[in-house]
Design a protein around this nucleic acid. Structure first.
Lengths: 337, 337
DNA sequence: ATGAAAGCGCTAACAC
DNA sequence: GTGTTAGCGCTTTCAT
């Protein structure tokens, strides 16, 4: 037989299905000898519990839904990896969906996950998301949800974030104290939360150190390799190079590396580069990238921990806010003076 | 109310739950006006279908279980990404599990996924897996399963693989034809299928070109960055450097890059390096890595396509075998003579 | 066109 | 200690 049910075992042993159910869950009602007999024949018959049925009447799926914008970005794949780690250890399944930075797909994903009756949701918003509606709905349905990396600040769900602005200010203070003053910023899209925060950190740090803010050295672009590449070319062709480039993330920095090398410039001798990033990746850049280090594994871990905690305590929107510390790592891509 | 059921809608409209069920699924039985009314009130009441219930009585979950050894390896995260892509497009959910290259965890994952009644499984074996038992069980239960990248050759499940040995032979033929003869091999663990295949490709190519096989130039190690780093140090300290290094994968190659640069050697002038890899990653190595290119997106796509096809045709072990073509890409890390 | 009956596989509550 | 009853939310016959 292909699919054995508890009732099949019961029939074979001439007992009630309830006895079987209890025995298999090691319920104290059932005698040891009975349990032994049942478990044995269950094994022989190739019984496999049907979790769907169990989920239906317990109204719990032990499943967490994750929504990430992009899995090819190793920042996110590290986050997901650590979430799966934590979830598995606590006996939860993970259903993974990818929004491709599209609001419409993200919305669809979340609705699907809700229909699947996940016990909770871990969401990193897409870059274009502006509509809170699906999230309001999740809130109404009392589904625990935790935002990570990108969040609706105004909503009452728990959030796990990096504290970008102070991270930038602290790092830039150190760099400026070392004697640098001519610094350009490859700032990504200033419309996005992250681009905005990071750019504000940059301008705040200049201000704090009484350095002039040069408009021509704030170069907007995207968040990908090619954006860093193009931004560098633009900067270089202006004929007015700074001492350092501060990039919005490690991919933009790597694009800048490529363009700089093609232009025959040496890093860090001719131009220094530093960025937000993740040292497990950026330590393999050539030269090693000086980074404001953001640990995705910590972020995934904390977000998942928070979520499972809320699930098990029956809290649907905890309103907690956790900041993951950023650490400035001075590597090879910026000279010490 | 938090959780509206079809029966709640029925009660409100004073009709039968069956009518509601049919209307919501756009069944032709129901009149247009009725449908409209039902869908409208369903929307107003905030009805969300319960897929668990539907799954229970249809005995289909529209869910695929994936087992990968490691998600921090971008090769696998690209594969998973493309699988999710394909699955989502065909209205399947994806439950993702990670084995961390441990046979015991892999086994547990698969058993859990079977209990979750996934419609099919996509599995890349861990490096240490030797026991076929769980897979035999999946086969007995008629659960469609497709292996990707690493498979039990002897089992009758479908497989999607790279054809490593001919890939190595062809690539090495080209390189040797260019005039190279002194080539070392960083071969990974020769015990694993992949290490074995690739090493065989190397030795076969040397033989075919009548070049001697030097034991001291076959350096076993692992498959990670650090293994390439250590292997290079070992090779370099022998005082007998080859012209080229052929690495078992891109991470090992990158580790070798690092050690070579630390030793003051230039790539490719002093030593050339090439490897199996994935050009979207390796094109950002410095210098760009010459690779036997393996496209993970293609692999993920083909495996998922095969699986969903088997699911929908009711085939449990299709026995198909698909090879993903490898393409030799001559980049900067090996000089043309 | 609409609805009543029965069941998917399992479990909680309550009897015996 | 074991069994009976009832129900999780939905859908598939089969009547009306």
């Amino acid at each position: 037989m292909v699919n054995i049910r508890q009732s099949d075992i019961a029939k074979k042993l001439n007992i009630s299905r309830v006895t079987v159910s209890k025995a298999l869950r090691d319920h104290p009602d059932i005698s040891l000898s009975m349990k032994k007999k049942i478990i044995e024949t269950a094994g022989k018959m190739g019984y496999v519990p049907n979790l769907i049925a169990r989920q239906l009447n317990s109204r719990r799926t032990f499943t967490i839904g994750i929504v990430v914008p992009d899995l090819e970005n190793s920042f996110f794949s590290y986050i997901v990896d650590s979430m799966i780690d934590y979830a598995t250890e606590h006996n939860y399944y993970v259903i993974l969906t990818v929004s491709r930075e599209k609001e419409a797909i993200e919305k669809q994903n979340i609705e699907n996950l809700i229909s699947m009756r996940v016990d909770g949701l871990l969401v990193c918003l897409s870059q274009e998301t502006t509509d809170e509606q699906v999230f309001t709905k999740a809130g109404k349905m009392k589904i625990p949800l935790v935002f990570f990396d990108r969040a609706f600040e105004s909503m009452n769900f728990s959030k796990v974030l990096f504290n970008d602005k102070p991270g930038a200010v602290n790092s830039l203070n150190r760099i400026i104290r070392e004697g640098y003053s001519r610094i350009a910023n490859f700032s990504g899209y200033a419309k996005t939360n992250i681009g905005k925060e990071r750019l504000e950190g940059f301008t705040a740090a200049l201000k704090h150190n009484k350095l002039p803010l040069r408009k021509e050295w704030i170069i907007e672009g995207g968040f990908e390799l090619n954006d860093g590449y193009e931004s560098f070319k633009k900067l270089n062709s202006s004929g007015n190079l700074p001492e350092l480039i501060f990039a919005v993330n490690d991919r933009v920095a790597l694009g800048a590396y490529k363009a700089a090398k093609e232009a025959g410039l040496r890093i860090p001798e001719d131009i220094g580069i530093f960025a937000y990033g993740f040292n497990e990746i950026t330590d393999f850049f050539d030269p090693q990238l000086t980074v404001i280090n953001q640990d995705p594994r910590r972020m995934g871990f904390e977000a998942c921990k928070l979520l499972i905690n809320e699930i098990e305590k029956g809290i649907s929107s905890g309103g907690n806010k956790i900041y993951i510390e950023e650490e400035f790592l001075w590597r090879k891509s910026v000279n010490r003076k």
